[in-house]
Nucleic acid binder design. Structure first.
Lengths: 95, 95
DNA sequence: TCGGTATTTCGCTGAATCCCGAAATTACCC
DNA sequence: GGGTAATTTCGGGATTCAGCGAAATACCGA
């Protein structure tokens, strides 16, 4: 609960989660059918350095909100909808 | 959204919100019928200094999770259930 | 008005977080 | 193997957060 809330207490991370709700709309190079959006596209859209965005993605992944898939040199990120829903429902029950 | 998540990203603050769900059980001196739990009881239970807990309570209040009522020298805090529910529902829709 | 209690504000220190560039890692291609 | 691209890890400096004690504020009762 605490780690999840910490992961959400940053504007850039909230924005990343929002963008990934609709990859095709937010990342024109992505057709939405693949295993997610590659880190470079997210980094570019966030307008921060690669290392900074990589850290944000790692925090979101550790919190369970994102899943990562390595495919060749690229790492694709996508939302873990099941765990996101599980979190919001737990919050509704326990908060 | 961001401010609310920041308010929840601290263990002491989460604990305070939880205690206030059942004042009679967590604060024996409180009969649960009054306008909330006075700051001193929360401070004692949290085991931190008065100034620290006062800051936590202010953050929770600014985020909309708590309401405060001054009665004489005491300030009573209670959960704002409507706004807490509004937040969890917004999170479920938008996260 | 004075003294006492409850709470908040102020000033400060140490810890955590954020952000960056450089270096390391991983994987592709020739 | 050497060169290149994508990503992560490392080491740092800046900002924010958490905590405290002391001082200030608010209120009551004698």
């Amino acid at each position: 609960m605490l780690d999840e809330c910490k992961a959400l207490s940053n504007g850039t991370r909230l924005r990343i989660l929002d963008w990934l709700k609709d990859p095709a709309a937010n990342f024109p190079c992505d057709d939405g059918a693949g295993p997610g959006v590659c880190a470079g596209l997210i980094q570019h859209k966030a307008g921060a350095s690669a290392s900074t965005v990589s850290a944000h993605l790692a925090i979101l992944q550790r919190a369970g909100f994102l899943q990562a898939t390595r495919r060749g040199q690229w790492v694709y990120y996508r939302r873990d909808e099941a765990r996101i829903r599980a979190f919001t429902e737990a919050l509704q029950r326990n908060l």
